[in-house]
Every structure is written in C-alpha cells, then in structure tokens.
C-alpha cells in the first residue's frame, strides 16, 4: 500500500538546485516536448500509474480524501456516515463491497469524483475520476439506490468504456462487470 511507505520528503528525489538541469544543450526534439508540456496533464500518467492511483484512492482513508475536495464540513459528514455504518467503512474499497452502503455516502463519493474531474484545484486524472464517479452510481444501483439522474443508456456506455481500461482494480472491475449482465 503506497501510503504506508512514506519517507521524509526533504531527503527525497530531485535536486533543489536550478542549475542541476537546463535546456542549454537541448535539441529540437527536447525543446518541442518542453513546449508540448503545456497540453493535457492527464497524458502524463501511464496505465501503471493510473492503476496505482486507483488502488491508492480505494485504500486511502475516505474522510480526508473526499473532504479535501468537497470541503471541511463534508469531512466530518463522511466520517460520521463511515463510522456509524455496520461494518464501519474505512475507505472506498470498504464502501464498494459493503453489504448495506449508505446512499448519502455514495452520493458524496460521486460528488467528490465529479469535482475532482472538473475543478482545477482537485485534479484527479479525468479517467480515474470518471471511474470513481460511475463506481459510486453502480454500487448504489446494485443496492436499489438512486443517486444519479443518468439513464440506462448512459450507464451502459460508461460501463463499456470502463471495461476496456487495463488499469481497473479487480474490486472496481467487478462492479462494472456486474452492471453489464
């Protein structure tokens, strides 16, 4: 689990010297790439990164993850809903596989995913946020709950799209797979 292996960032990678690397000897190819950095931030993450990122999102404590995007008031609300559920919900993975997930909590996760995809200061990669968004909706539907106005056709399109992704976690893949049946 990624967040269990933290080290002191001050001892970490990267130089603090601006003279460590520069473009003084860069050729046209490198210069072109440097200018292209200005486009599409999501393209900078590969499938392996997205796989790790999804696992991280599933296993990280739910309240701070969601609260950071939605606001401090929601952190407490998520914490309350998580701890009063039986069994208690520590993270998104618990919520996805919960026997009786609270609709309000699924709705908050859906909102968190939507904001993460759209808001400039909470930028989960768009595809990852989209997966979390539909995961929340599908888990709700599986339990007969409605947290979205999306119709069946839209859900099916999203499901077909998600099933093509190579980096889906097994837990999440099962959620999408069950929606195709």
């Amino acid at each position: 689990m990624i967040h269990g292996n933290c080290v002191n960032p001050h001892l970490a990678m990267g130089s603090t010297s601006s003279k460590s690397r520069d473009f003084s000897n860069a050729g046209p190819t490198e210069l072109l790439k440097a200018l292209r950095l200005l486009s599409s931030p999501d393209s900078r993450w590969g499938d392996a990164d997205l796989k790790d990122m999804l696992q991280h999102a599933l296993d990280a404590p739910l309240a701070p993850e969601v609260g950071q995007a939605l606001g401090e008031a929601f952190t407490e609300r998520v914490r309350q809903l998580s701890t009063t559920s039986l069994p208690a919900i520590a993270n998104l993975r618990d919520l996805v596989s919960h026997p009786n997930p609270p609709a309000d909590l699924l709705s908050l996760v859906k909102d968190f995913a939507k904001i993460s995809a759209e808001h400039p200061t909470h930028p989960l990669p768009r595809d990852l946020a989209k997966v979390l968004y539909y995961t929340a909706i599908l888990v709700a539907r599986r339990h007969g709950l409605t947290i979205s106005a999306q119709d069946d056709a839209a859900i099916q399109r999203a499901t077909r799209w998600a099933m093509e992704l190579s980096w889906l976690d097994d837990t999440v893949r099962q959620v999408f797979a069950s929606a195709t049946v």
Binding site: I2, H3, N8, P9, A12, M13, A48, D52, E65, P123
Partner: peptide, 26 residues
C-alpha cells in the same frame, strides 16, 4: 518515476496529491 515512487519519495498520503502537484506544476 512512477506514481507509486513519487508517493513514496514525497510522502504523499492521498491519491489526488501527486496528480494535484503535477497539475499545479505544469
């Protein structure tokens, strides 16, 4: 370096952090 390496090296605890930092940086 992979996302996982970044998280380990920088001590990032939330999935959005590395993505957020990279987006802020760009």
């Amino acid at each position: 370096p992979s996302y996982a390496d970044l998280c380990r090296e920088l001590g990032l605890k939330r999935a959005a952090q590395a993505s957020n930092l990279l987006t802020t940086a760009t």
